[in-house]
Design a protein around this nucleic acid. Structure first.
Lengths: 197, 197
DNA sequence: TTGCAATTCTGCACTGAGTGCGGGAACCTG
DNA sequence: CAGGTTCCCGCACTCAGTGCAGAATTGCAA
């Protein structure tokens, strides 16, 4: 890893950290890109060579999360059904995101609920990831799943989990990790029931 | 309906029509709000008292679509299960949008695929509608469905359909409008097949 | 018809996101 | 340390969107 690459990675991280801090203290809309760039000690113009837009600061590890899901598909057990593979995949992704308790995690959840552009970005990343997962799932079960079926299954799965969480967070009550886990389990059962017969 | 309301509705429609035409000819990004306002013969500033943002021009009947879904829930048959109600509800929505072959319909589909901000807006509207549908579904089956379960079920349905369509459009095949419509219908049927037993 | 109040329209000035360009600085290779 | 390559960053710009205040329009009553 060359000096260039190391510096670049460090600057990128500095931007994410600075943004987290500023968003926390001044709010998302109250923080300008100029603020963030200044805090990370780079020029405002240079910011855009690290992130294409302000919202992207909130999803710095999106690719890694997707890759974790794809790896879980690749490492499936011989007898697994498509739905089982998705279950394991989801477990991997959520483990990934729980492990790294970045300052961003809680903040991101909050901003997704309150800032439209952040929510939109998150949903787009989710949908892109879904399609990619569906592609790999279809490839993993040739002859059994075509791309459209795989995408429908993946969409149902992700849609159920997302819907459950959405409803959970719409009510200002019961937001403890226990209720969260329970809701996800119930959502997954709900989503996969038709596929199990 | 007062003169004020009539004029306002006419201006709103003029904005939608002007936007459709301009987006078609100059592209979405190539069209400024000033262009659209000028074409509809209002001041640029006034545009924002009709639509909060440029993307909203593409979804002028979002509320009506949601209402159609909610009506379908209200008009359910006595013996229907929640999944049956959702099936009918989604059919109503797609019927609604097929009937009115507005110039916007095809254009919107295209822009959703190509313009990120439009896609983000569409996904947000979809998610908001999902939650509202889940609320009514839960209310229609008290004691049987709580809000979180209803949201999971709704999310699974919508996710399956959206995923299937996403996969369909991911393949860059050129299709005639008739063939395209048929393919979409097939994909939706395929996505919902597991719930029909 | 006229006068007045309530809306609505709209120009102006402004902030902030994001882009194209070009010169200069930092890095890498030999 | 000289060369080319890559990256940084200031400048000028476009456009979306907002706040404000005055002008225009409409609704209503006398």
């Amino acid at each position: 890893m060359s000096l260039r690459e190391r510096k670049r990675a460090r600057t990128r991280q500095a931007l994410v950290d600075a943004a987290a801090e500023l968003f926390e203290s001044k709010g998302y809309d109250g923080t300008t890109i100029a603020d963030i760039a200044a805090a990370a000690e780079i020029g405002t113009r240079t910011f855009f060579s690290y992130f294409a837009a302000k919202e992207d600061l909130l999803f710095p590890e999106a690719e890694a999360r997707l890759q974790a899901a794809l790896d879980a598909i690749a490492d499936r057990a011989p007898g697994d059904r498509p739905a089982d593979v998705l279950l394991v995949s989801l477990r991997h992704v959520s483990a990934e995101s729980d492990e790294i308790v970045s300052p961003m995690a809680a903040l991101r959840l909050d901003l997704i609920r309150t800032v439209p552009s952040v929510r939109g970005k998150g949903l787009q990343l989710q949908q892109d990831a879904q399609l990619e997962i569906a592609r790999h799932l279809a490839a993993a079960f040739p002859g059994e799943l075509d791309l459209v079926s795989a995408a429908a299954l993946t969409g149902a799965f992700v849609g159920a989990v997302t819907g459950a969480l959405l409803a959970l967070f719409a009510e200002p009550e019961r937001r403890e990790p226990a209720a969260l886990h329970e809701a996800m389990q119930a959502a997954v059962d709900q989503a996969l029931a038709p596929w199990r017969g």
